Simulated scan of single mutants.
Amino acid sequence: MDPEEFWGVIADVRAGSLLADEALAAHIAALPADAPLDAVLRSFHDGLMIRLKTMTPAELCAFDEAHDDARRRLYHWPLWAAGYLIGGGCSDDAFMDFRNGLIALGREWCERVLGDADTLAEHPLVIAAAAREDEVLFCEELAYAPAYAFEATTGRPRDEYWALYERHREGKPVHGASPTGPDFDFDDREVMLAHLPRLTAFFWAED
């Protein structure tokens, strides 16, 4: 699956979910001020599952590979810092979940935040999360959606899917294990303000 096709699937699913611009604005406006925002990514996940269940096992592997490749592109220190602010901390596993959520925002947003992670402060979901002191864009389930779709459509266990996916990836290049971009101290507010001024102001109040 080439990047155009992959991002086309993401765009189609996003358009039918609460991440669509008008739907997101209406959802946020209708929520009580203290209500969590978890339904937004859940709606994307549910829509993605419906789409994945139409795919053959080979197509699921191709989608999964494209998703992995997109997530590796987002393995970027400033984005990890953004996840650290939004999540009130961000382990290696949590950063994978955060990158899943970034992919759900679509190709344009992923390109924007790779260029400048602080532009994430302009996304309506992030703005709403800051106002509610809520955590958004962390979605572990999106990483496992192809395996669950495989299980649902074939009746075979998820372990068979993982073995199939490993065979699919055999002989393909391994991406770098270290994040790209500048590394800096996530626990120093002044440093974070220098790199991510808007997100830091949103999510890290002065002592």
Score class of each variant (00 low, 15 high):
I86R: 12
N100P: 02
G88P: 05
D68V: 04
G101S: 03
L60C: 10
M96H: 14
F63P: 13
A81W: 00
D68A: 09
L79F: 08
L102E: 09
A104V: 12
A82W: 00
R72N: 13
L102G: 10
I86T: 10
G88Q: 07
A66T: 10
A70W: 07
D69M: 11
F98Q: 10
G87Q: 02
C61M: 06
D97H: 09
A81T: 04
D64L: 01
A66I: 05
P78R: 01
L79D: 09
L79C: 08
H67G: 02
H67T: 00
M96Q: 14
Y84T: 10
C90P: 08
S91R: 01
L79E: 09
G89S: 10
C90Y: 03
G88K: 04
A94V: 03
G88A: 08
F95W: 02
M96L: 12
A62S: 14
C61T: 07
N100D: 12
D97G: 03
R72E: 15
G101R: 00
N100V: 03
D92C: 00
R99V: 12
F98L: 07
H76V: 14
W77I: 07
N100F: 06
E59F: 00
D69W: 03
N100G: 15
L85I: 11
P78V: 02
A104M: 04
G101V: 05
A70K: 07
I86Q: 11
S91F: 03
H67K: 12
L79G: 09
A66P: 14
L60H: 10
G89R: 11
L74F: 02
D68I: 00
D97I: 00
D64W: 09
N100K: 00
A81S: 05
E59A: 15
E65S: 12
I86Y: 05
H76N: 14
A94L: 13
F95Y: 14
E65F: 14
C61R: 08
C90R: 02
G87E: 04
P78K: 01
E59K: 02
D93T: 14
M96K: 10
R99T: 15
G88D: 07
D64H: 15
R72D: 15
F98A: 08
G101P: 01
R71G: 15
D64Y: 08
A104Y: 01
D69T: 15
E65M: 06
Y84W: 15
W80Y: 04
R99E: 07
L74G: 08
C90M: 13
M96I: 11
F63Q: 03
I103F: 06
D93V: 14
G88F: 08
A94Q: 14
R72Y: 13
L102K: 08
S91I: 05
R71C: 15
A82V: 05
C90V: 13
A62D: 12
D92H: 12
A81N: 02
G87F: 03
